[in-house]
Nucleic acid binder design. Structure first.
Lengths: 148, 148
DNA sequence: CGATAATGATTTGTGTACTAATTATCGTAC
DNA sequence: GTACGATAATTAGTACACAAATCATTATCG
């Protein structure tokens, strides 16, 4: 009687594979992002800002699906290293307008080298990556819909 | 000129989808694990122990691909709630023998209800989940092989 | 107009997660 | 048998990540 029948077998847990894949892939980014002074979550925030700054904390939270409580200190660190600016919206003093500094803008050129470097290191072909992306999109949607 | 050509577009970053999928799915586990007094990483440790206790920190680290520095305090918490025992190996005082308490063993019955509940909540069919699992396994192997 | 509800961000508390440094123990070579 | 390199675990330090509580500001209702 092998563990073939064991519903709790570690290696058949999708959540386990998901957690490891996430950690491992983020680990690949580390040596590339570290010279830029960014962590992976910070890199994702910069991606969002390069696409459409300025953004409020709430908008960033929705885009990145991160808690405002997580973003708040993270944004302060990005401001401390000089990549972003944090100002209160003049129309509504409650919302924070997060925008890019010139250095933050400049960093984009460096960042463009990251995705191809990752793909090269992974050594997976585009088809496999697209299939993974499709599967991930499906499970994200499923988890969203399952919130009750 | 849409963002179709933008290599930094947020929603085409696999790492982004990976991070969100991981967080979202783990989030689904939270309400199920919390009544048992477990977090998701703690649940993974228990899965490993149910399969083959006793295990050393090093062995757990290798199985779960978690840093010993992460496991050390986590295991103390599991001991504090009474699910595991931490003893030094009598043969080699350096290694820690992590084993289950009777309560830890009993918890397995509860835990068996978790995976089907998750699958039900996700509402994805087995085929989709298996495809996801295959893709994740591939990317984990690729990231492993890319460490240099 | 003024009390109150709602909103956006921050703070607090607990628990990962990784790197690097430290400690304790073991094995080996001299 | 003692110094020494290797190994196993812990600790320290920084940075997420989320839930719950708090605070400031805005909107709304009587």
């Amino acid at each position: 009687m092998s563990d073939m029948a064991d519903p709790l077998s570690l290696d058949r847990q999708v959540c386990f594979a998901l957690a490891i894949a996430s950690r491992n892939v983020i680990g690949l980014y580390r040596p590339l992002l570290e010279p830029m002074g960014l962590t992976h979550p910070q890199y994702l925030v910069m991606l969002a800002l390069w696409e459409r700054a300025p953004l409020s904390v709430k908008e960033l939270s929705k885009l990145l699906r991160l808690d405002p409580g997580t973003l708040s200190p993270l944004l302060k660190r990005l401001e401390a290293v000089g990549y972003i600016r944090r100002r209160r919206d003049s129309q509504d003093q409650r919302v924070l307008a997060v925008s890019l500094t010139p250095e933050g803008h400049r960093l984009r050129d460096e960042a463009e080298k990251v995705p191809p470097a990752i793909v090269r290191r992974l050594g997976m072909n585009l088809e496999e990556l697209q299939e993974l992306h499709r599967s991930l999109t499906r499970v994200i949607a499923a988890a969203d819909g399952a919130h009750h």
